[in-house]
Design a protein around this nucleic acid. Structure first.
Lengths: 136, 136
DNA sequence: ATTAATAGTGATAATCATTCTCATTAAAAA
DNA sequence: TTTTTAATGAGAATGATTATCACTATTAAT
C-alpha cells in the first residue's frame, strides 16, 4: 500500500497544467516545465502525468495524431475538432452529460468517465476527396 | 491524382474485417489474414487499414491501451468499456446520434464523425483506490 | 532533530506500435 | 501484349512511451 509524495517537480507540473488553457502534448508540457526548472526530466513528466490521470486530476485526450494531449479535468465539457485545421473547440452540453450517464445506467453501469470527440468541417466548405474506392 | 487498386490482399483484409464481430487490434487482424494467406505482410495491413479508414469503410477505436482497434464502420452505435474487465459493450442511441449532430450544427460545423467511449463500472461494485493525492 | 525506510528523480536504454524505404510484383491503361 | 504506376513484402527507421538503476528527497519513526 504505497503512498504518494508531493514533490517540487509535481508541484511544478500541476501549476503548469493549471496555467495551460490549451491542450498541450507531453513534449510541450515538458518544455513549459523546463522553462521554469531546467533540471526537469521528461521521464518524470510521463510518470506524473500518468499518476495525475489515475487520480482523476487530469484528462488524456486523443486527437488522432499519435500523441497524447492533456488538460485539467473538467467533466463539464467535450471537444470538437476541425478536420480541416486541426483546431480544437470546447463545448458544454448538459443534455449530453445527462444522456451519457443515463445510457451507462441503462446498461447497468456506474459512469466512471467518458471520452467524446466530435469531428466536423466548417459549414459552407466542401470535402475534396481525391479518390473513390469500391470493395467487391 | 493517383487511383486505388483492388488487390487480393485488400480483398482478404476486407473479408476478415467483415467476418469480425469483435474489435480486433492490428496484430490480431494480421494473424487472421495470415491464417488465410501465409504471405500476408503486416506493413500492408497497416497501409490498407489506413486507406480503408480514409475512405470511411472502417472505424478506428481507441480503448486507452496503446493500440488501435478497428471495426467495419457502423455509425449507429458507440462503445462502453467495463473498466474492471476491459470488456467492450456496444450500444445504440438515436437520441445521442441526433444530439451530437445538433451540437456540431450549433457550432457551425457539418458533422464528419464522432468518437465516443463511455467508461463504467458494473453497478454494485465499489471502486478501490489505493491512494489519495492532494495538490497544494 | 536524526535516522531509517522507501518513493521519486534524472538520464538513458529498451520497448513497441506504427511508418518508411526500396526492390520486386501485379493491376489497370494503352 | 507492353507500358505505366500503384501495391506488396521484408525489414529498417521512427517516435512516443515505459522500464531500469543509481542517487536524491520526502515522510515516518525514533
Amino acid at each position: 500500500m504505497m503512498d504518494i509524495r508531493m514533490t517540487s517537480q509535481r508541484r511544478l507540473l500541476a501549476s503548469v497544467l493549471n496555467e495551460s488553457n490549451d491542450h498541450p502534448d507531453v513534449e510541450t508540457i515538458y518544455q513549459r516545465c523546463k522553462a521554469k526548472d531546467e533540471s526537469t526530466s521528461i521521464a518524470s513528466i510521463y510518470r506524473s502525468l500518468s499518476l495525475f490521470e489515475d487520480t482523476g486530476l487530469i484528462e488524456k485526450l486523443d486527437m488522432g495524431d499519435g500523441k497524447a494531449r492533456f488538460e485539467i479535468k473538467r467533466t463539464d465539457h467535450d471537444h470538437l475538432l476541425d478536420v480541416e485545421t486541426g483546431q480544437i473547440h470546447e463545448f458544454k452540453s448538459q443534455e449530453l452529460q445527462r444522456l451519457i450517464k443515463e445510457i451507462a445506467d441503462e446498461m447497468g453501469f456506474d459512469l466512471t468517465e467518458h471520452r467524446l470527440e466530435i469531428y466536423g468541417r466548417k459549414q459552407g466548405r466542401t470535402a475534396c476527396r481525391c479518390y473513390e474506392i469500391k470493395i467487391y
